[in-house]
Design a protein around this nucleic acid. Sequence first.
DNA 1: AAACTAACTTACATAAAGTAACCAAAGGGG
DNA 2: CCCCTTTGGTTACTTTATGTAAGTTAGTTT
Lengths: 105, 105
Amino acid sequence: MKQSSICPRFEKAVALLSHRWTALIIYQLLSGPKRFCTIESSIAISGKVLSERLKELEHHGIVKRKVFPETPVRIEYSLTEKGLAFAPVLKEIEEWSQTWMSIEE
Amino acid sequence: MKQSSICPRFEKAVALLSHRWTALIIYQLLSGPKRFCTIESSIAISGKVLSERLKELEHHGIVKRKVFPETPVRIEYSLTEKGLAFAPVLKEIEEWSQTWMSIEE
DNA sequence: AAACTAACTTACATAAAGTAACCAAAGGGG
DNA sequence: CCCCTTTGGTTACTTTATGTAAGTTAGTTT
């Protein structure tokens, strides 16, 4: 019997983080709005997966998408309040990694 | 050009979390040592993936494995100091999820 | 000896992610 | 008008990760 007595909100948050790149995308956006191609070249993600992740994050209300009808079109992705509230999580991961994670291997 | 200017320790920590179940396994072990079958039934993970994750976490020095040569054999998994230090990360995820994550959808 | 238990492992199936090529809209140049 | 460029994608196909179910090993109970 597979029963989970774990809080479903917590499980959902963990599931979100367990998608590759999600945390790094939020991390990149913490320093301000970014364009698709900027995010794409700042982490080793493929365009396909980046567009999937951005849709997913937008759907969860973590990221918002703003279209500037210039030429060529410019689209900026930024964090919502919900996304900004994620900062402490990333800060703790960063602190833990500085103390405990080794570079080798 | 795919360059990452992100700290490799941070990237490694995020990569670890981006493996499904990793965070939930650590979360389960925060409340004390647990056996294989106990973890297996407390989250919806398959035995195969659980044994992979435990090996991975052991390899990273986050989890330790102790064999009790009783009969039938009993094996306990527990967190190392490195694993226990991960608690604040999970606590922040939990807090974020309580405030921002909705149950529906 | 047959059945049971814990902790795995193996073989096979499906889902997620990576790669590379292609597409659409909005100019710009000739 | 036709061809070229740019951004922000999508599509088709391959590889990797995860899921499912059955099998394995070692010792125990019936």
